[in-house]
């Protein structure tokens, strides 16, 4: 009786939560992509992460900041310390004040965070026609089904229908809630040259940058899943032992 009841309560409780998630805005339902990081044993594809970082650097970073990330985090992508120093060295950051009280520019170090393209949110919004390009550090976690959503958005640009009236600097995207988006289509075939022979297509670019952004929002995913596996295996075995103990102790009662 009570097990049935527990199951019943659990089902009743989780079903509506799930339904709550499934019902969304008016945008087209997302297509579920198969990601390298999906599932209980999924991991990040290092090559895709590096390609994704290249896309971010060469395309997204001109408008979008990633203020939660530092160059030192790039070790997760498979870069070694010298490579990271070299990457950081390509950027310059403001430091100071020096002995004379002046701020000065110096090459970035691994401990520095990714420099933002604009001085502040106001400047970023002003330079982008009033629409603030969101910080991308957590963009995947900050959207329902973030990976599929961002992939959909990057590949979902279409010709606007005749009855849609878009203002200057607005575009039509089938996955954007409300369809109207202020970001111009950021990716196009052949735009970024890959060195590892991966296809230079919009789809490939989008998939790679989503892999990178997913990592950026959830850098400990692999450790988390590994730790979880150990913890759960331990608890399951412990639970069996405990069940045996309980039965032993209760054997003279029943």
């Amino acid at each position: 009786m009570m097990f049935r009841l527990i199951l019943f309560v659990a089902a009743l409780t989780f079903l509506p939560l799930h339904m709550a998630r499934a019902s969304g805005g008016e945008a087209e339902p997302l297509v579920h992509q198969h990601w390298h990081f999906s599932g209980a044993f999924g991991t990040y594809d290092r090559a895709a992460l590096q390609r994704g970082y290249k896309i971010y650097r060469e395309v997204c970073a001109s408008c979008h900041s990633m203020k939660q990330l530092s160059f030192r985090n790039l070790t997760d992508l498979g870069y070694n310390e010298n490579q990271i120093k070299a990457i950081a060295g390509e950027y310059s950051v403001e430091d100071g004040p020096n002995e004379e009280g002046e701020m000065f520019e110096r090459p970035a170090r691994p401990s520095d965070s990714f420099p933002a393209p604009f001085a502040n949110d106001k400047a970023a919004a002003y330079a982008n026609g009033g629409a603030l390009p969101p910080d991308l550090s957590l963009i995947i976690k900050a959207r329902h089904h973030g990976s599929d959503y961002v992939y959909g958005l990057l590949t979902g640009y279409e010709e606007a229908p005749h009855d849609a009236h878009l203002l200057d600097g607005q575009y039509w995207n089938k996955y954007m809630p409300g369809h109207v988006i202020a970001m111009a289509p950021p990716l196009s075939d052949g735009q970024v040259a890959y060195e590892d022979g991966s296809p230079d297509t919009t789809q490939q670019y989008a998939a790679d940058v989503v892999e990178f952004l997913t990592w950026a929002g959830d850098p400990h995913m692999e450790t988390r899943k590994r730790t979880g596996l150990k913890a759960i295996m331990f608890l399951v075995v412990f639970a069996f032992v405990m069940y045996a103990v309980k039965r032993q102790i209760w054997s003279d009662v029943h």
Partner: peptide
């Protein structure tokens, strides 16, 4: 003992 067993299942 019974509570510990139940707790472990919950923790899983």
């Amino acid at each position: 003992m019974k509570d510990t067993f139940g707790l472990l299942v919950f923790l899983v």
